[in-house]
Design a protein around this nucleic acid. Structure first.
Lengths: 227, 227
DNA sequence: TACGCGACCATACCGACGGTATGCAAACGA
DNA sequence: TCGTTTGCATACCGTCGGTATGGTCGCGTA
């Protein structure tokens, strides 16, 4: 991949540089193949062939095929989170943060790597134990923080558990929205529609929050606890 | 599985009865194993062994391993949709329909078969082409119809595409909510939290809808289209 | 009732894949 | 310079999804 591997990138010794280079090459090829063909259809042989190494090298750096996927998954997710974070950090008002973050997220989610690896195949490959640790995912943490700011605004202090549940719901909605956008024939107008709907939801929540209504009471009115 | 197969269940000829019985046995075993071990970890050999047949029988009824999964997927999804449909049909008011449907859905989604096969592994195994046809899924159709009623109430007629996008977002939120509930240490209180949050969202939307506000305008206010 | 036919399924086999055991060379610390 | 360890290559195995082929028994028909 890299013609002459890395020429003293930053590691202490030469050995470490070469090692890190082959590891990076493996991850690059794996990410490409996973994105193009999916996890199941991508063989380890094709990965090592693409990186011009053998399976010995792969199993030296990773413990299994799932391990390779997990490393790719983490890398893609972190890169996306960094990108969104930039847009969020540019604003201070929670609502404007949400606005900017949403726009960048809808941009990121259209990229094949994020969509296929993180959204589509990630949960199935890594399993529920990993999804359980969704709180540790950087993109989710971003959404959670923004929603904390929104729900906390106006002195609307709800307990942490509810905010976390709210974040999970919202995060799930965003992911499926992203999938819908990515698969759409006309992504541009689909993005516009998603922004409208999310805007509607946020506006509705905002109005309710700023009205100072009580959560439990409002909920009970809409979803009556019949006998 | 069934001791003496089916004894003239409903088919015209005896041959068809036996055939349908083995097919059903295969699906039963496959559903159990897919639920317990997941798609990848379930071998066709274990399926045919559980049904006391051979691979010849399996490949006579299905064209591939994915075909078996798809059949199981459809069966589980349809059964769940029927169950939810009953709760929905018991009400006429769209909001009460949503309330009842949500409660049953949160019950269904806690069952391992639905969670693992439909929510967790379905999208990854069947691929985006199938997810693209999400509109054809019975559970989604249910959500879509209810939300049509809600958004259409009060004369709030939005175009079909927006309603569909809204439904997709909401459906995605419900699925992740279901996963969160199923994986929770304390499912009961988690269900309560999800109902609160969904209630909050519905209440907020309801208030906004009934206020007769304009969608585009409201959205623009919350998510400003900066330069 | 004899019979030919086709649905239904069993058996045997193949190539590919994930994973492991072992060997080896070169770079590192001393 | 020398032993050690790190980084990787090679050879191999068990398992799995899928296929090709053959057999058998129920069923419509004459």
């Amino acid at each position: 991949m890299t013609e002459l591997k890395a020429s003293r990138a930053g590691g202490a010794t030469r050995r470490q540089d070469f090692s890190a280079a082959t590891r990076r090459d493996l991850l690059d090829v794996a990410q490409r193949l996973f994105t193009e063909q999916g996890y199941a259809a991508t063989s380890l042989d094709s990965i090592v062939a693409g990186a011009s190494v053998t399976k010995g090298a792969l199993y030296h750096h990773f413990d299994s095929k799932t391990g390779v996927f997990e490393a790719v998954f983490t890398r893609v997710d972190e890169a996306s989170a960094r990108e969104i974070q930039q847009a969020v950090a540019a604003e201070t008002d929670p609502w404007r943060q949400a606005s900017g973050g949403l726009r960048v997220f809808l941009e990121v989610v259209r990229r094949p790597a994020y969509r296929r690896i993180v959204v589509q195949e990630g949960p199935a490959v890594l399993g529920p134990d990993r999804v359980r640790a969704e709180e540790s995912r950087p993109t989710f943490a971003l959404v959670h923080r923004i929603l904390e700011g929104i729900l906390g605004a106006g002195g609307w202090t709800t307990d942490d558990a509810t905010v976390r549940t709210f974040s999970r719901l919202f995060f799930g909605a965003l992911n499926t929205a992203g999938a819908a956008v990515a698969l759409s024939d006309d992504p541009e107008t689909e993005v516009a529609r998603v922004e409208q709907v999310v805007g509607l939801l946020l506006a509705a929540v905002r109005q309710l929050v700023e009205s100072g209504a009580d959560l439990a009471e409002v909920t009970a009115r809409v979803l009556p606890r019949d006998a």
